[in-house]
Amino acid sequence: MLGVLDWIHFMAIIKSMAVKIRKFKVDINNIWCKSCEICVAFCPKNVLAMENGKPKVINPDACTGCQLCEIYCPDFALKVIKLEDAENK
């Protein structure tokens, strides 16, 4: 019978495994991007942050693929890509 500790340990492994199966990627076209910071401000998972004037993915695993950043980006400079799509593209 698994002890409580084993159970916590087991869950940690599962969680870390889940994190490794990353489902989404955020592509940013820095030429079109005019640094309005809307994507950074409205990403619910703080996946993005400004770095020398341009948004950068700093926390890729947190991305849930909600596409808010893509919907908001006024410059058409940001794309959320489903990774399976990315592989078979």
Binding site: K34, S35, C36, E37, I38, I71, Y72, C73, P74, D75, F76
Partner: peptide
Amino acid sequence: TGCGCGIIMK
């Protein structure tokens, strides 16, 4: 930068 036109066009 930050103009809403792009958001509406999208």
